[in-house]
Design a protein around this nucleic acid. Structure first.
Length: 380
DNA sequence: AAGTCGGGGAA
DNA sequence: TTCCCAGACTT
């Protein structure tokens, strides 16, 4: 802990103030809190990585209805898992979650190894913070429960460092530098570890997240009613929202792609599976081409009697690190030339269970509106 | 240490 | 528009 900033309060006093605030103002009715189980906490934590609570809730409910247990998840086809992840993004989370469930079923008797942070981190998709969150939330029950769970390991301490904790800690201690930088992150971890208690661990963990999410917000923090405003160094400096420093910005490059909307006489659309890792890994997508020449070659090779229509209007899909300009190209045909195992005819009116990239899903749903036209492909 | 990996909510 | 969200993983 050599690089830990001077704490703004003694750990015990910090915990006392935070838990007192939590008992009165914390969130106690999130879907993964009742009923609480290691499996439900785990799934929620994975979904919540880089994703807002309000976005996650409907996905979480659907996921739990389809996969109520770790075993149900482990035994499901990957297409089913990605289907329920469609639109949530960061699909490696779903692939890793699925894989980790299978590992837990094989190696840990069908349960999450919540005995240690290290055991959890050995599973794909679980890093240090997510491991800490799972340990914390399955280590003891609600504060109101007087009797403790048998599985609780007394005195176990597991810290988290999510966006909420990073924001709170940088403000309370006026930590400069972007938290994504390893040196800054190290000092934030040190603070997080310092304040984390070994009693009421679940409540403390939920409390520090609720504090960041509802009081010490990114913009317009409620400093006047904050239980720490007497010791907060950012507040003392007068501009708490100046912390944390923002990520250095760089201009996003733009890539172009043509998406082939190949339809047969029944109005079905040809989809192909993406490679198992990388962008949109494991999802199904329209065939993509960088240039019209490549598209023409593909049609000549694989399609019997293609009828090209005018391209649809292009649109831009933005990723974290680049923009993708998409030009949809409708083509009608009788059938494919030969049998292909790497694709499927997607019936919009009877959609199969599989994962779709968001812009592909959007295009397919638009298609449904004029699927009965004898000569589809309105030009613009 | 920097890049990859989504999509959407909010200002 | 821009920022960033209960981050992890690869290079």
């Amino acid at each position: 802990m050599a690089d830990m900033p001077t704490p703004c309060l003694a750990a015990e006093e910090f915990q006392r103030r935070l838990l007192n605030w939590f008992d009165q103002y914390g969130r106690h009715d999130l879907p993964w809190q009742t009923p609480r189980s290691a499996y439900r906490v785990w799934v929620s934590e994975i979904m919540l990585q880089q994703t807002q609570v309000a976005t996650v809730i409907p996905y979480f409910e659907r996921f739990m209805a389809r996969f109520p247990t770790l075993e149900a998840l482990a035994n499901a086809p990957q297409d089913d898992v990605l289907h329920l992840w469609t639109g949530l993004g960061y699909y490696a989370r779903a692939r890793n979650l699925h894989k980790a469930a299978q590992v837990a079923l094989e190696d840990h008797d069908g349960e999450l190894p919540t005995t240690s942070v290290e055991a959890l981190m050995a599973l794909p998709g679980i890093g240090r913070s997510t491991a800490g969150a799972i340990i914390a939330q399955s280590s003891d029950k609600q504060s109101s429960d007087k009797q403790r769970s048998d599985k609780q390991i007394p005195g176990q301490q597991a810290a988290i460092l999510d966006g909420n904790v990073k924001r709170s800690m940088t403000r309370l201690h006026a930590v400069s530098g972007w938290p994504g930088k390893p040196a800054v992150e190290r000092s934030l971890w040190a603070l997080a570890e310092y304040y984390t208690p070994d009693t009421r661990l679940a409540d403390y963990t939920q409390a520090i997240m609720d504090f960041g999410a509802t009081l010490c917000k990114r913009s317009k923090p409620h400093c006047l009613i904050c239980p720490f405003n007497d010791v907060c160094r950012a507040y003392a400096q007068g501009e708490p929202q100046r912390f944390p420093e923002s990520k250095p910005k760089k201009t996003l490059p733009t890539r172009e792609t043509i998406m082939l909307m190949l339809r047969d006489r029944q109005g079905r659309v040809w989809l192909e599976r993406r490679p198992p890792s990388g962008l949109w890994g494991g999802l199904w997508s329209l065939p993509q081409f960088e240039r019209h020449g490549d598209l023409n070659d593909w049609l000549a090779d694989h399609v019997v009697a293609p009828e090209r229509h005018a391209p649809l209007v292009s649109f831009t899909h933005t990723f974290s690190h680049f923009r993708l300009s998409i030009t949809p190209q409708p083509v009608n045909c009788d059938r494919l030339n030969g049998v292909r195992e790497d694709g499927v005819w997607y019936d919009v009116n009877d959609p199969p269970t599989l994962g779709l990239a968001a812009p592909v899903k959007s295009l397919l749903s638009q298609l449904a509106t004029f699927t009965l036209d004898p000569a589809p492909g309105p030009s613009r």
